[in-house]
Every structure is written in C-alpha cells, then in structure tokens.
C-alpha cells in the first residue's frame, strides 16, 4: 500500500527507515508485537523498491497503487551484493509468471578510488578548463574542445 510489511518476518532493524528517499517507513512499537516497520504515508511512496531491496528479512512487499492496479499481482526482488546480480520475479493477475536477472556492478563494493588518491594536479591544469582525469578520460585525440566564438 504501496509497500507493506509482513509482521512475522520484520525484526524491527530499521534499515528500511534509514534508506527510504521519501522518509515514509516508520517503526511502530507495540507491547504486543514489538518493533515493526510500516509505511506511514503510502501516497508519497514512489514504489522505488529501495526499502524492499534493503530489508535483510525480506519482510517488505509491494501491492500496486489501489487507484489503478487491480489485486493479485506480485513483483518481488532479490538484490545480491556478493554476486552483483538483481533478480526479479513477476506474477500476473491471471497467474502467469516471468523472471529476469540483471548485473548491477562490475567491481567490488567499496573499491572506488577516492579523488584524493589521484596525483595532485598542477597549477596549469587548475587554471585550464580541464576537469579531473581530463584530457585522458575523454579518450579522444581532439582533447578538450572549445568553440569558435
């Protein structure tokens, strides 16, 4: 609605609360069921799946927007940062199914070199129109072009 949380799976870790770009996942605290996440403002949910992908318990699911998505459908996702693959499972209202898998990254998480680890630029570079890694990363003999004024 659009996201909803399965109370039997959620352990109240708060990861969904931390990641949601819309700031709409919340933790409720009840003496009966303990800390559980829920979507506090479904009409500000973009169905972006950020929280779904992040939940370690796979407790969050999506039910398409009530105003135009009929019931009985399912789109579930598994994002694996070890194999760097995202897998989607799709179930239609009429019961038919489809599955897809796509790569998400070609390098190890955390491996990006920081800009401060690059060679210190010269004053000449600083005074030019060049950006970091240029002209090398433009990969063209033309170098950085300028227009005739």
């Amino acid at each position: 609605m659009p996201t909803y949380v399965n109370p039997n799976k959620c352990d109240g870790c708060g990861k969904c609360v931390d990641i949601c770009p819309s700031d709409i996942m919340r933790l409720s605290n009840s003496i009966f069921s303990g800390r559980k996440a829920y979507n506090v403002e479904p009409n500000y949910c973009w169905e972006c799946y950020s929280c779904v992908k992040e939940c370690p318990q796979h407790a969050i699911d999506m039910r398409g927007y009530a105003d135009f998505a009929p019931l009985d459908h399912k789109l579930t996702v598994l994002r694996d940062k070890e194999t760097n693959e995202v897998r989607w499972k799709l179930k239609y209202r009429d019961g038919s199914k489809n599955e897809f898998a796509f790569p998400i990254r070609t390098t190890t998480w955390g491996s990006i070199p920081s800009p401060q680890s690059q060679k210190t630029p010269t004053n000449e570079q600083f005074d030019s129109q060049l950006l970091s890694h240029e002209p090398e990363y433009l990969k063209t003999d033309r170098g950085l072009v300028t227009a005739k004024r």
Partner: peptide, 22 residues
C-alpha cells in the same frame, strides 16, 4: 523491454502484471 522498467520504473511492470497486459 522489461529491464527498462525494472531498472527505473517498477510501477509500470506492476501495472502490466495487475492488469494482465503481456
């Protein structure tokens, strides 16, 4: 075609699934 939406607008896939649009 599917990756296009699964990478950037999952809601469209949900519309297809919910309305039986293959």
């Amino acid at each position: 075609g599917h990756e296009d939406f699964l990478d950037m607008t999952m809601s469209q896939t949900i519309v297809w699934a919910s309305q039986n649009i293959d």
